[in-house]
Amino acid sequence: MTGPGRQNEAALAAAARQGDKGALQEILRRNWGWLKALLYSYTGRAENLDDILQDVCVRVIEKIGSLREPERFRPWLATLARNEATVFYRRKGRQLPSVDPSEITLADDKTALPPEQVEQREATQQLVGAIGGLPEKYREVLLMACQGRTSYDDMAATLDVPVTTIQIRLVRARRMVQERLVGKEQVKIPRT
């Protein structure tokens, strides 16, 4: 997002803080893609996403008044989302993160598919499993870049890390996925 875009978002956050429902809905709509990707990166389960997203929305509605810096809405939302995902799984007696590549699910998993699509779906399942097997910090940037179509600058602002870190994590995430797909399960994870 460009400078004016950020200012616009900060203005929306400031209006939302004062109880403007329309502004709150609009700012959430703008950030919905990466928010969904981020939650998926934490949970690895598409079927729970709507419930967690709703919990996140409830918390945002109730806590937006405590947002002191409207220009930092994104990192605030990312932190809140992670906390809500943790609370969601704690209520179910599980801990976060506990992403098991073999348990990674696609949306509409139970839908009956024509035979020609089954193979493609299995390949996709394998790829999603490889992504799910990445360490969290690589998984989250890869999913945000793909689903959220989020720029490097925005990802850096959201995750509170330098832009160069985002670049390097993305490259390494893709490399690790590639290596997992060709069977190199024991990938040495570099430090960033």
């Binding site: 998926y40 997203l53 949306a107 509409d108 999603v128």
Partner: peptide, 9 residues
Amino acid sequence: AVEQALDGG
């Protein structure tokens, strides 16, 4: 794959 995984909802 990611779009397919997150499609729906």
